[in-house]
């Protein structure tokens, strides 16, 4: 048990410290790296409580894909220039009340959820859970997701699809004057279309491009 506790406190300490560093560090790219560290330590915590599937999915989805795109965007932004606009002058104080309000709201929400879960567990209906300890947690997750919650699961998938389509529609620009390579056109070209044999008359030449 001692080893378990040591690992738990190490990972949670890393998670909390790196979460603070995400907001505290001045350099945006450093923030993203701390965010990645946070994700990794949280997935370690997931694995420690036996939710190995969730831990691995966390690594694959958040660290392997989402954070890479974050990093990608942050590196492409001209951060050095914007930093001066954000941190210089009095305008910083405007953001603080808004941030405070939102964070208090989230804090109370968490309190309500955790408190309710702790003292009134019957509200959350966890007792008739389908947890079957003989199955691996991938199997039990699949059994719950694809039977009782299939509609919720499918709807969340559709919401993601709609978000994706929306993002593409918003950013899509039809640009004119681009030369596009069409593989089918290139491959299916016949000799007759590309080559023409002409009788060249003396002193007149051939007009090539028309």
């Amino acid at each position: 048990m001692i080893a378990h506790a040591i690992f738990f406190y190490t990972f949670s300490l890393i998670a909390v410290v790196s979460a603070i560093m995400v907001t505290a560090s001045k350099n945006t790219v450093h923030s993203v790296f701390f965010l990645i560290l946070d994700f990794i330590s949280i997935s370690c915590l997931f694995i420690m409580i036996g939710a190995e599937f969730l831990g691995m999915i966390m690594l694959i989805v958040y660290v392997g894909a989402v954070a890479v795109l974050f990093l990608f965007v942050v590196m492409m932004l001209n951060v050095a220039q914007q930093k001066n606009q954000w941190f210089a002058g009095q305008s910083t104080s405007k953001h603080i009340p808004v941030g405070l309000i939102i964070s208090t709201l989230i804090f109370f929400e968490i309190i309500i959820v955790i408190g309710g879960w702790k003292y009134k567990p019957e509200i959350f209906d966890i007792n008739n859970s389908f947890a079957n300890t003989s199955l691996s947690n991938t199997h039990s997750l699949g059994q719950i997701l694809y039977t009782d919650y299939i509609h919720v699961f499918q709807i969340s998938g559709i919401i993601l699809l709609v978000a994706m389509v929306g993002a593409i529609v918003l950013t899509f620009r039809q640009r004119s004057g681009l030369k596009r390579q069409s593989y089918i056109k290139q491959i299916s070209r016949e000799r007759a279309e590309g080559v023409e044999v002409l009788e060249v008359q003396s002193n007149k030449g051939v007009k090539i491009d028309d």
């Binding site: 990645i36 190995e52 599937f53 691995m56 690594l59 694959i60 660290v63 890479v68 990093l71 991938t138």
Partner: peptide, 23 residues
Amino acid sequence: NVGILYLFAVSSLGVYGIIMGGW
């Protein structure tokens, strides 16, 4: 239990070495 997911996760993390080095 989730060996293949672990392999996939680690291979997808491999990109970080390159991004960090490049940046």
